[in-house]
Design a protein around this nucleic acid. Structure first.
Lengths: 211, 211
DNA sequence: TATATTTACGAACGGTCGGTCGTTTTGTAG
DNA sequence: CTACAAAACGACCGACCGTTCGTAAATATA
């Protein structure tokens, strides 16, 4: 198989479009986003987009893929470098807040925005977002259960409840940051989870190195 | 001043439109909402709406007013019947979850939806929503500070942090409920705050009557 | 009854939306 | 150079958007 410049060109623009669409989707919404908007921002024609995706919905699903990949690369994988247990759970929260702090996406968090946009709109998009949320909560619950198995959690601490706690404090941060100020909001989001983790941990000093 | 049937009629339809618009806004979004949609749902003409609001934006602001009044009547005021301090803070959370459980709004929570829709869209609407969030967090922080003053919180517990905690657990509930199931989600949301309040309270049995 | 006043309507406007189609450009292969 | 394939474009479509305007219906006042 030799190198085909035509297909390479297609993949290049396809990637650029998806990237731009992800950015704009966090501002205008995954559905509020318009194809002209995306095309104009990249200097390509609107009709050219239909060469890559047969419909807007197909593009929206591709955007969700892109957002998931970005989240994996910039939040989950870095956090997995921490040792399993409470420290890894904390690391996920910390990396997540750092992701928001870095203003990678102008609208904050793609998935949170999209969930609240589609939470009452049945359809393919909503179903896909539901799967993403289920996976994410399973991941967090798994980390908490792992901490429990390692004996790092006090007896009686529910892994599902702890996962819910982590998710809650993260979501609220990205909601409040633009209104109440990024620095104090993110500081609170971090501090609240630190304190909660220390309260439910067998050894409260396990996160001692954190502020 | 005598009774004027013309104005009465106007106020009646005005109220009906606002009510319908609030319902639809939680489904389609405060901006995604269309005037034809609202008009058709009530069997009135679209152009007739402009007799009451000069623009869509004016209607949107009126919808925010309506949502605020509803939240006051159905969440805040009932919760204020609880004695001040930790129990009142808990009551706010409990009433809030009950409001979600009652499915008053088809799209869950108007303010949360609207915040995530407008968090990156400067303008009058966003500014107004920001004020609402600031007021709400001041209210929660005030309740927590009151609990502290009453000596119901352990020393070192930050009222702002506790308010953030309450808000977090509430928001996450309305986000996850449609996906992960209403009953278990709301149960978790309640349990997590109960446990947290007991952990930071001077007297953990102050909420003993709760499950 | 005649006359204001307020509410509500129908028709129409310019603009944008997602989407289609035939054509041109760009690159590959013989 | 020719023949072909993929990518990208421009023009256009019907539908819906928010908005305007002149008018009709309902209600008050005289």
């Amino acid at each position: 198989m030799t190198h085909d410049g035509r297909i390479a060109r297609g993949e290049r623009t396809r990637g650029a479009v998806i990237e731009q669409a992800l950015l704009l989707a966090t501002v205008s919404g995954l559905d509020g986003l318009s194809l002209s908007q995306v095309a104009d921002a990249l200097g390509v024609s609107k009709s050219g987009l239909f060469a890559h995706w047969r419909s807007k919905e197909a593009l929206q699903l591709a955007v969700i893929d892109q957002a998931r990949a970005q989240w994996r690369d910039r939040v989950v994988q870095p956090a997995m470098e921490a040792p399993p247990g409470v420290r890894r759970l904390w690391s996920v929260h910390d990396r997540r807040i750092a992701f928001y702090e870095a203003r990678v996406l102008p609208g904050g968090c793609f998935f949170t925005n999209a969930h609240f946009e589609f939470n009452a709109r049945p359809g393919v998009i909503r179903d896909r977002l539901a799967t993403e949320l289920t996976d994410w909560m399973s991941f967090l619950t798994g980390l908490a259960a792992e901490a429990s198995t390692l004996g790092e959690l006090r007896p009686g601490v529910d892994p599902g409840g702890l996962a819910y706690h982590v998710e809650s404090l993260g979501i609220c941060a990205v909601m409040q940051a633009p209104v109440l100020g990024a620095a104090p909001t993110y500081a609170t989001a971090r501090r609240q989870l630190i304190e909660h983790l220390r309260a439910v941990a067998t050894d409260p000093t396990i996160l001692a190195e954190q502020p």
